[in-house]
Design a protein around this nucleic acid. Sequence first.
DNA 1: AATATAGTTCATTTTGAATTGAACTTTCTT
DNA 2: AAGAAAGTTCAATTCAAAATGAACTATATT
Lengths: 169, 169
Amino acid sequence: MSGSKNADIVATAEATLQRELVVVFSNLAELFGNPRSLGEIYGVLFASEHPLSMEEIIRRLNISKGSASQGLRQLEELGAIFREKEDGTRSHLYAARLELKPLLSGFLSKRLVPGLSGGAERLKRLNDLIPDLPRGAQPGARLRLQRITKWHKRAGTFLPLAQKLLQGE
Amino acid sequence: MSGSKNADIVATAEATLQRELVVVFSNLAELFGNPRSLGEIYGVLFASEHPLSMEEIIRRLNISKGSASQGLRQLEELGAIFREKEDGTRSHLYAARLELKPLLSGFLSKRLVPGLSGGAERLKRLNDLIPDLPRGAQPGARLRLQRITKWHKRAGTFLPLAQKLLQGE
DNA sequence: AATATAGTTCATTTTGAATTGAACTTTCTT
DNA sequence: AAGAAAGTTCAATTCAAAATGAACTATATT
């Protein structure tokens, strides 16, 4: 009966669900400036009722061993997925944590944190430079630096706020 | 007297200020997934006490005419810079709006808005697919979709909130 | 009207990040 | 201990986004 119409619909529905979730998370990854493959891997795990082996992930997404290995490690580091291993078996099994928080805040901070901290030092150094400017230019420069610094501080408070907002209550 | 030590320090300080601000804004652009050149152009204008011609911008940043033209247009569309023209002169002059709000919210929404709205439709379609799944898989699928949808709604409220936070009081 | 300069457009090129895949290491099984 | 399968690493490749620049249009000057 595996060629029946109903079976086809079911198979299609499952495949579609997986395919679309892969796209959703792949876009999400890109949105936050992370490699698509990270999102794809999470997506395929998120869509699956059962944990999957690396081999199976590679097969479903048609990606390389290297991408799979690196992607799985990164997602695990973010806390977005689990790596399980039952004794008496060689391969690991991978499963998504369904709470999206680790993934989202991981995506967020992997990008924003380094970007923000780098800027902080730079701004500090620039402030020390102002006395070397010609007199007339000093007030203008001071104003400009104040503007960025103000923004920068806000961005600093913004990150934790965003994380709180994105996670559950 | 133009080779004097003080003149050198002053020249260096001004050059440094511009150079570093260019870097700050170029990083910022990248952080939000926009082309570096957008940030560079804004940076050079932000650093300058006076409006600059396109020619001058090209000279200072060492970029192509094409990049300059397109970048300036985009920044103008975001409301991050002005384009002035005095009668009796051929070239326009470009100046940064020192309030960072237009730049920042422009950067934010150019990325997030399309990303989010695309996802919304997709999720809706997926919900309609659930009845076609095998019985046993339906509750799991429903749970998963609820999780993403919940997040997605939050992200929707998040954007305006972020903009409020980044702009003035 | 002719000329010159500013600015735009878009097909081609460049660049840098992501992906690949082959060689390697680790871990399990007999 | 040897063999096999899982997983890692990283130099080389691929690919998409950004930058270039030459041809074009628009606008001002004589």
